[in-house]
């Protein structure tokens, strides 16, 4: 439970508790630059469908139905900001290199979750879905949720369990849809299972957008959760108040 700005006196007894295993911290932080490179290089490739002189209708990377398009991805200022124009080969080169590292890190993470049993604190429970709604309302400062207080939780609350499990599944989805795009002839069964080549590209694109959305929410939540929480993903340890530790009160004051 978060207690913002908890005043801690010198005499107070604290305890240092291991929160995130070393392997998870490594894989978490390694994943960050790898996913960033995958998204950046992927965008350089996506630009190819926006080559200005063609004026091709966007059939995949857009929001729209049939011939009607609301938003076309992406606007020129965005491409220029990214220095994306005519960098397709750079994008392909990096994408098809870092894909291996991204896949290895992701598979290693999944194996670690399974073998260590860490999946138990991550995978949503039946209760998590209701909890997630209350946590979200609480974070949005809805009075009723504030009065009710946060639901009891372990390492992760219901919303976190759902979000962090979803991001693992999204990673798997990106690998599979990427493979379906990469080898649509040799792995035609996979491409067909995902709804065909264009659909696989659509899925791959929106999973990327999902990662970007997750990143924004994740960073905001980490900032709100405070230093003690962030530090636990660095050092692995979290400081807790000793008394009343049934409620697992965290300290958000700095070192």
């Amino acid at each position: 439970m978060r207690v913002e700005g908890a005043a801690v006196t010198e005499r107070e007894e604290l305890r240092l508790v291991k929160k995130h295993p070393r392997a998870i911290r490594w894989m978490h932080w390694i994943n960050f630059p790898l996913l960033a490179i995958m998204i950046w290089s992927g965008l350089l490739i996506y630009w190819g469908d926006s080559i200005p002189p063609y004026q091709h209708p966007h059939e995949v990377y857009r929001i729209g139905i049939g011939h009607w398009t609301l938003v076309r991805f992406f606007p020129d200022w965005f491409w220029n900001l990214l220095h994306a124009p005519y960098q397709i080969t750079t994008g392909l080169g990096w994408h098809f290199f870092v894909m291996w590292l991204f896949a290895i890190n992701g598979v290693a993470y999944a194996i670690y979750l399974a073998v260590s049993g860490e999946w138990r604190v991550l995978w949503p429970k039946r209760r998590s879905f209701v909890d997630a709604i209350w946590v979200t309302l609480y974070d949005l400062h809805v009075p009723a949720a504030r009065r009710r207080g946060l639901p009891p939780q372990g390492k992760y609350n219901g919303a976190q369990r759902i979000a962090y499990s979803a991001i693992v599944l999204m990673g798997a989805g990106s690998l599979l849809s990427g493979l379906a795009i990469y080898k649509p002839a040799q792995l035609h069964w996979l491409t067909t299972a995902l709804g065909g080549y264009e659909m696989a590209r659509w899925e791959h694109f929106w999973l990327m957008m999902g990662f970007c959305g997750f990143f924004v929410v994740h960073v905001v939540q980490v900032i709100l959760a405070g230093w003690n929480n962030f530090r636990s993903m660095v050092s692995g340890c979290e400081i807790q108040r000793l008394e009343n530790h049934d409620q697992r009160t965290e300290i958000s004051a700095g070192d």
Partner: peptide, 13 residues
């Protein structure tokens, strides 16, 4: 979860 250390606040920090 494993407790690394407990005790005086200053020491823990």
């Amino acid at each position: 979860e494993a407790e690394v250390v407990r005790g005086d606040a200053e020491m823990v920090r």
